[in-house]
Amino acid sequence: MAPIFRWGFMGLVLTLIYIPILVLVVNSFNASKYGIKWGGFTFKWYEKFWNNDGLMTAALNSLTVSIVAASVATVIGTLAAVALHRYQFKGKALLSSMVFVSMLTPEIVMAISLLIVFMALGIKLGFISLVIGHITFCLPFVIVAVYSRLKGFDMKMLEAARDLGASESSIFWKIILPLALPAIASGWLLSFTLSLDDVIVSAFVTGPGYEILPLKVYSMVRVGVSPEVNAISTILLVVSLVLVVISQLLLREDK
């Protein structure tokens, strides 16, 4: 491919990817209600969102679910990554294939399978079921992030630490954890954004009493254009973009 054609093609695809996002962001500041003409710059849609109690509650609920889910997934995922990396144990192949499969399972299948299991176990749909669901789809991402970081190090180091008198817990706290920390932080941030943005699993496992932002947005856009959705969407986009960029910078830092 000729360089000009190559750059042109990449430029075109990337532009097409980012145009809708840009349009949305610009329109969230557009005073004209239907976003057809530029009606002047305004913050009023953000104010409307801020003053809408229902939306704010949903946003707070979303934040709560995401923080809890990301944190639990990070703890369990980090431990699992360390175990997969360090130890030989029965069922290791099974565990890693479950991680692999759960990453590839279509979300809709995961959603209904979780719904069925919550019914079977008698778990009430609501906060708890949402958190469990979100942990489940975040977990493999954390495991993979931490595992691939650990794999990048010479693990003779752990033997060296033992040789120098470090107990198993010292090795974990003084060697493994500091080394994996960027990946752990990045795993948390990615989990947080995944959880904050999820629609499919949430649509199935949420309960009537517990509203979260993406579902609220979903029901709003289904009935028609409402400008405060643009504001909410912009906030969601910006939060995700910032967190993902931070997480990537964390991983790049000492490489």
């Binding site: 010479d154 060296a160 040789d163 120098l164 080394l179």
Partner: peptide, 20 residues
């Protein structure tokens, strides 16, 4: 006696220094 309790130390082939 586990490795961490032996009065013996090793210089590893790849050095195995702690990078952080």
């Amino acid at each position: 006696v586990p490795a961490e309790k032996r009065p013996i130390n090793t210089v590893f082939q790849s050095y195995a220094l702690f990078p952080h």
